[in-house]
Nucleic acid binder design. Sequence first.
DNA 1: TTGCGATATGATGAATTTATCAAATCGTAA
DNA 2: TTACGATTTGATAAATTCATCATATCGCAA
Lengths: 120, 120
Amino acid sequence: MFGDGELPLYEIKANLFKGLAHPYRIRVLEILSAQDEASVAQMIEITGLEASHLSQHLSVLRKYGLVVSERRASIVFYKLAYPQVADLLKVARQLLAQLVNHSSAQRAAVGALPQLPSQS
Amino acid sequence: MFGDGELPLYEIKANLFKGLAHPYRIRVLEILSAQDEASVAQMIEITGLEASHLSQHLSVLRKYGLVVSERRASIVFYKLAYPQVADLLKVARQLLAQLVNHSSAQRAAVGALPQLPSQS
DNA sequence: TTGCGATATGATGAATTTATCAAATCGTAA
DNA sequence: TTACGATTTGATAAATTCATCATATCGCAA
């Protein structure tokens, strides 16, 4: 999948995360986590992306080994290449919850601070 | 942490993965997963990076909320911002194992194919 | 073969990231 | 205050990614 397989493991791992480092690609992977497979048309409808835009993102996901595709007649179906991709998304959700929670707590704390004197 | 908190959640999630999308940054986070905290000097020694190079990467990790830093005198210590970061790395390792395993199996299968006639 | 729906690929400019070096800043001892 | 070790920040060029549009390709029915 990466030609002669000479790519360092850290590079391959970084590539996995690169695949995940775009909002639409996360959405695609989440759709594929929620159902066994999805056609490109389905994903276009769900994400609202234009066909060629989605296809470019799907190409990245294929390139980094996160999804696999299968053409049946004129319809192409995608699925997660490994179930661990869904696990990754799951943990990311938990991390995001922590982060957003913490961020909200920080903003509340700032809001409770005394007002600074104006500079004008 | 993201100013007025107006960034869409998918953007924030993508940012998390962006933080992870570089080999040296993965290494740093793995070091911080393996021990409670590490000083910059320690990480310089382990990674072999130059100080300013490492600092730029640490800045990205801080920016995306993956690590927190604390200065004690002239030494700065870093730790994971949340334990879920370590979980993420753990699942990524499992995914990588699958991927590498599959990749090896694919290469073995190709190796077993009959040799194509030469084109010269 | 032609035409068409579905999808992928190519191309390109803008935006962002990466790599690297120079300079600034921080904390502290003298 | 000066000097120094430790670390961060600024700057910049090269590389890569992102966004978008045009074009090509695939599979199949007629």
